[in-house]
C-alpha cells in the first residue's frame, strides 16, 4: 500500500496531463459548452429582461450567477462522455491491469473538469462584462464566488462521474445534465421567487440553486450575504460527498 501512496499524486498528474490534452485538442467543446448560456443571457437581457421586475435596473447583474451555474451544468456533460469513452474503449481495463492507484484515473477527469469549467466560466464573465455587467465587489467576495463555483463544479462533476460510469451509451451519459440544466429555471436565478405559486415557490426556495445563486449575487453586489452562503456551502459539500461515495463504489465494483 505504501508504494501506492507515494505514486498516487504522480499517477494522477499523468492522468491529468492526458485529459488536459483532450481538452486543448478539442477546444470546440468549450464553445459548445458556452454557446447556450450566452444565448440565454442575450435572450433574457435584451428580450425578456426589460419586462422582468427585479427591483434594480441592471438585470445582467441579477442574471449572471444563474448563467454561471448553467454553464457548469453544461460543462460536466463532457466528463460523463469522456469517462464513457474510456470505459468503452478498454482504456480503463488497461489502467486497471497496471500497478497504479485505481482512483487516479477518475481524479484526472475530475481535475480537468475544474480547469475546463473555469475556462468556460471566465468566457461567460467576460461576455457579461461586455454586455454591461458590473460588480463593486472587492477581492475577498470575488474569491468567495470563485470558491463557491469551484465547489459547485466538484459536486456536479462527481454526479457526472456516476452518470458516465453507469451509462451504456453517449445519449444516456448526457441525459442527467439536462435535469441539472433545468434547475436554475425553477429558482431565483432569472426572477425573484415571490411571484411563483406556493408549491413551486416552496420547491424553488429550498433547492440548492436558489441559495447558491443568492449567495453569489449578494457577494458580487457587496450586499450582506446572510445565511445563504452557509446553506449554499452545505448543499455543495453535501452533494459532493454523497456523489463521491457513490461514484467510488460504482468504480471499484467494476473490477
Amino acid at each position: 500500500m505504501e508504494t501506492i501512496n507515494i505514486y498516487f499524486f504522480k499517477d494522477m498528474g499523468v492522468m491529468f496531463g492526458r485529459s488536459m490534452r483532450h481538452i486543448f485538442r478539442s477546444l470546440d467543446t468549450i464553445m459548445t459548452v458556452t454557446i447556450s448560456p450566452i444565448a440565454i443571457m442575450l435572450l433574457f437581457v435584451f428580450v425578456l429582461g426589460g419586462a422582468i421586475q427585479i427591483g434594480t435596473d441592471n438585470y445582467i447583474n441579477y442574471l449572471l450567477p444563474g448563467i454561471l451555474l448553467m454553464t457548469i451544468a453544461n460543462g460536466i456533460g463532457y466528463v460523463s462522455y469522456r469517462l464513457l469513452l474510456d470505459k468503452q474503449r478498454g482504456i480503463f481495463e488497461r489502467f486497471h491491469s497496471m500497478p497504479i492507484a485505481r482512483s487516479a484515473g477518475l481524479w484526472g477527469h475530475v481535475l480537468v473538469s475544474l480547469v475546463s469549467n473555469a475556462i468556460s466560466v471566465t468566457v461567460i464573465i467576460l461576455i457579461a462584462f461586455i454586455m454591461g455587467f458590473r460588480s463593486p465587489a472587492g477581492v475577498l467576495p470575488w474569491l468567495a464566488v470563485i470558491g463557491i463555483l469551484g465547489l459547485f463544479t466538484l459536486s456536479m462533476t462527481w454526479i457526472a462521474v456516476i452518470a458516465g460510469l453507469s451509462a451504456k451509451s453517449a445519449d444516456s451519459a448526457g441525459a442527467f445534465a439536462f435535469v441539472i440544466h433545468l434547475l436554475p429555471f425553477i429558482s431565483s436565478a432569472f426572477v425573484p421567487t415571490n411571484t411563483m405559486p406556493k408549491v413551486v415557490r416552496i420547491f424553488a426556495e429550498n433547492q440548492p440553486v436558489t441559495s447558491i445563486v443568492d449567495a453569489m449575487r449578494a457577494l458580487l453586489n457587496n450586499q450582506p450575504v446572510g445565511n445563504d452562503i452557509w446553506v449554499a456551502l452545505v448543499w455543495c459539500i453535501g452533494i459532493m460527498i454523497v456523489a463521491y461515495i457513490f461514484a467510488m463504489r460504482i468504480y471499484k465494483n467494476r473490477g
Binding site: V14, R89, G90, R94, M98
Partner: peptide, 24 residues
C-alpha cells in the same frame, strides 16, 4: 485487451510516454 485500448486523441508517442510514466 480485445479492443485496441489506445488513446485516440493523443499521438502514438504520447500514448507510449503516458504508459511509461504510469509504470514509473
Amino acid at each position: 485487451g480485445q479492443f485496441a485500448a489506445v488513446d485516440e486523441i493523443l499521438t502514438g508517442r504520447e500514448n507510449l510516454i503516458m504508459i511509461a510514466k504510469l509504470r514509473h
